[in-house]
């Protein structure tokens, strides 16, 4: 694999890595809710600062995060242009026949910040939380649904298994693609129908392999007495410590309180 997947987990020991996955999930949720229900400048700026602080503390390479922002920027510039063109309001200046309004600029700007925060907060979450911890955190957060008859444990197992096998499948797809290329598979044919047919030469072996693996995995799990019940144990239990209390406190102060003080339009 020459290219790195954006947002993939990067192992580390930073403060953010050490936080309980539940804290990070709740924190991410709080940030997202805050910026989606409120678009006033102070709220957006506070959240942007918070996210950059988190990324700094997580010791993630800024460059690798900002690689994804490049595409976001193109999208945002496009929206900014359209917002400027079509949002009516107090005219700020004229660009030929086009009147650029204050509201247009404002909307374009907030839209960009919102996208940026959404992207960065979800990246910060997935880059600092291993898939297994993430599944554990989700399971713990959704645990109360058990009383409504939702099989939370099975869903969590489902989730962690799928997360576990994503990289494996990607790797396998790459190998099969190369193998078919070695037999002259026309992946870059100008004809769409040929390309479509060619993708089958990767999909079929991939599916056959996955089914085989699923059977093997099921056997392996059953032979270790997995029954899908809620009472299986973990090697590492989640631990909600003082750092997590502190982190959640900060999030409440930065994300939730300003919502009360700076009511913005939804």
């Amino acid at each position: 694999m020459r290219k790195l997947k954006l947002g993939g987990y990067i192992p580390g020991t930073s403060l953010i890595h050490q936080l309980d996955p539940r804290t990070k999930l709740l924190g991410g949720l709080a940030v997202i809710i805050a910026i989606l229900v409120n678009d006033s400048w102070p709220v957006l700026l506070l959240n942007t600062l918070l996210i950059f602080a988190v990324i700094y503390l997580a010791k993630i390479n800024m460059k690798s995060v900002l690689q994804g922002v490049k595409w976001l920027l193109i999208l945002s510039i496009l929206t900014l242009v359209f917002q400027c063109l079509f949002t009516k309001g107090d005219p700020l200046f004229n660009l030929g026949p086009v009147v650029v309004s204050k509201q247009g600029i404002y909307r374009g700007g907030t839209f960009f910040l919102r996208l940026l925060i959404l992207y960065l907060s979800s990246s910060a979450l997935t880059m600092t939380t291993s898939p297994m911890k993430m599944a554990g955190g989700l399971e713990a957060l959704f645990a109360p649904l058990r009383y409504l008859g939702v099989p939370v444990n099975q869903f969590a197992m489902l989730l962690s298994i799928s997360l576990r096998f994503v990289p494996t499948l990607i790797e396998e797809a790459e190998t099969i693609t190369r193998a078919q290329k070695s037999r002259g598979a026309p992946f870059t044919s100008p004809k769409k129908i040929v390309r479509l047919k060619t993708s089958l030469s990767v999909l079929i072996p991939l599916i056959v392999g996955s089914l085989q693996r699923a059977t093997d995995l099921a056997t392996a799990m059953e032979s270790r007495c997995y029954t899908g019940g809620p009472n299986y144990s973990r090697v590492k239990n989640l631990h909600f410590g003082r750092k997590d209390q502190l982190a959640l406190g900060i999030i409440v102060v930065i994300c939730i309180l300003p919502l009360v003080y700076f009511p913005g339009r939804i």
Partner: peptide, 20 residues
Amino acid sequence: RDQLWKKVGLVFQFPEQQLF
């Protein structure tokens, strides 16, 4: 490079996993 498969045959590891 793109035409090289006609000159060099490559049998991958576990090639039976590529049958389709």
